[in-house]
Design a protein around this nucleic acid. Structure first.
Lengths: 345, 345
DNA sequence: GCATTTCCTGGAAACGTTTCCATACTTTGT
DNA sequence: ACAAAGTATGGAAACGTTTCCAGGAAATGC
């Protein structure tokens, strides 16, 4: 008598075949819906399957058939609502197509990224969905190139990999134009590190708007943030207390708006009178702050779904799977009451 | 010449053995760090492994060794930040232990729940992490009982399954006592459906606080919400416009606070003067609304980690894996300025 | 110096599917 | 009526590991 309780052995396809009095191959054919199976055979086998509560062993299936019905999904941070909403949409599409999602959070560490790529290879996953990540991780993108696996990137540029992106450049352009149009000349930009595609794109839009208006960009006003609200807080305090302070702030990062608002109350300044504000993401905070905060947003759920479907298409090996030109989703600027003309100095 | 490019065959353990001039079993032993392997053998094999870039096929491993190094994770809604933060913590622990997370969003549909349990069985996952779900889904919990698999539930009651729970009862008690202490007698409770454990527990706390103060609970003030902010909005409007309106509102659901705030501005009422407010979750909105909103919260990341480690412990089959008494994590009440004495009627 | 144990290694049988091939039986075309 | 083509089934060989078993070499006990 062993310590570990002997598990009641699970039925195999062989048991089903025996129970139904047919061959193993017939069971496999019926279960996979192949043609050339008679109705009686089908019925007999299905009866045996339900009686024995047979469930095929997917490792065996994967081993033999060389597909795991599994999608890898790599994201820097699962708790970022921007990402989790996209994943939510993508997962729904994968589920519908019979795939299961395998998730890994990389926390922007290249080691974890390569480790996950390794897991993707060993597990023979059928596809890989990549979320925004650091462009500087070239070892990783190199490993990816050798992967020979259907991939789709979301808001990330990887050579040879098709991507789905929000039009962050256009969005950055639009909000900067808006602020410049109000009369602002010193517009601070709080953004994530430029190594992330959305940040660099928005920055490009910001610069373009300045160029159009023949304005110089003061590099001191561009503040890449490595973390969330805490860093934004001190950075903004410094900006606002310094000489020649900005008259508008664009905050382009999850949770960063909170830091900015802290900094405002800490310095005793108010929006929109003292500074104009524009943030990213149509969050509860942006919507319900008083006054409401103008926000740049786009359809996250949709973005996840689009990416998932492109990936599924690639896995199925459709001909159009060849094209790797990025797909762009539009951004939308929600105008609220956090912007005003700058006061005369 | 076939259409599909012939993939360069990946090396198998046999290739490694040939390359190193040893037997397949020796390669397996070395790779799995078993004892009784000489240093030279080890070196020769590792050299062959790196030269060939060998990566074991995990389906084959799973088939033979009967463990998939995979954890299933079932959650109703991935985009709910409460959940995604817990998952984030749990995933980190699993990653550290060499497991990969397989995720499924069930959207509270029992079909999807049972479908995922089936996937868990077919894929021979090593464990299952269950997030808050509908207690009424007894078919599902029944299927779970037959699963014979290490499980841990988070904020969910499943017979025979150990769980990790926040002390929602205590939290509900604390905030209701606080409001009663301020003098409130008509306290509305907006909560998710009572079929979810956190809701029912908080409701119990709410009732207990009333009982302690020898107060009747007006059932009309308890408003289970099926959806997010939109429903809360109309429900609160109705409550506030009706006769004998509540003097305090407890909102216990993600995004529900936003709906309540909409309802307030729509009815022209203000907090804390006209109504006191308490919400769940230390969100950006609660923190930065003016005035700040008192919130009931707990450590989500920690909760995910604790659950993950209990599950890992169970998988390893430790003796103490037997105990299934729930583990409780404390809640914390963050007092801000959304509460005041009710005005004299 | 011989019997026993311990250490290292190789051979081969699983694990549970899918898929190729062969075969017996039908149908179709002429 | 006979060849050819098609349909339904079974047998057996993969797929790539781990693990059991056996056996030779080395170390240990007397």
């Amino acid at each position: 008598m062993s310590l570990r309780q002997a598990q009641p052995a699970r039925p195999t396809i062989r048991d089903v075949a025996a129970q139904a009095g047919v061959s193993v191959s017939s069971v496999s054919r019926v279960l996979n819906g192949e043609p050339h199976t008679s109705p009686e055979l089908h019925a007999r086998i299905m009866r045996a399957v339900t009686r024995l509560r047979f469930e095929p062993h997917s490792a065996a299936q994967a081993l033999r058939s060389r597909e795991s019905k599994t999608i890898g999904c790599m994201v820097s941070d699962l708790s970022n609502p921007l990402y989790s909403e996209m994943i939510n949409g993508a997962e729904e599409e994968f589920q519908r197509a019979g795939y299961v999602l395998m998730l890994a959070a990389t926390r922007h560490e290249e080691d974890r990224e390569t480790a996950f790529v390794s897991a993707v290879r060993r597990r023979r996953m059928d596809g890989l969905l990549l979320f925004a990540g650091d462009n500087a991780h070239t070892d990783f993108t190199g490993a990816l190139a050798n992967l020979e696996l259907p991939c789709v990137a979301i808001d990330r540029e990887v050579p040879g990999v098709p991507s789905v992106r929000a039009d962050h450049r256009g969005g950055g352009l639009e909000i900067t134009r808006y602020l410049i149009g109000l009369g602002h000349r010193r517009i601070a930009l709080l953004t994530a590190r430029a190594a992330l595609l959305p940040s660099s794109e928005r920055l490009a839009g910001y610069r373009q708007a300045h160029a159009e208006a023949k304005l110089e960009v003061d590099p001191d006003l561009i503040r890449p943030q490595t973390q969330g609200s805490s860093i934004a807080f001190s950075d903004v305090c410094q900006l606002l207390r310094g000489p020649n302070r900005p008259t508008a702030i664009i905050t382009l990062g999850t949770h960063m708006l909170a830091g900015v608002m802290d900094a405002l109350s800490s310095t005793g300044l108010r929006y929109p009178d003292d500074v104009s504000l524009v943030c990213i993401g149509d969050t509860d905070l942006a919507r319900h702050a008083t006054p409401g905060i103008s926000a740049l947003t786009w359809d996250l759920d949709q973005m996840g779904r689009v990416a998932a479907n492109i990936l599924l298409e690639r896995i199925r090996g459709g001909d159009e799977a060849r094209k790797i030109r990025p797909v762009y989703l539009p951004t939308r600027f929600i105008l609220r009451h956090s912007g005003a003309k700058p006061r005369a100095p």
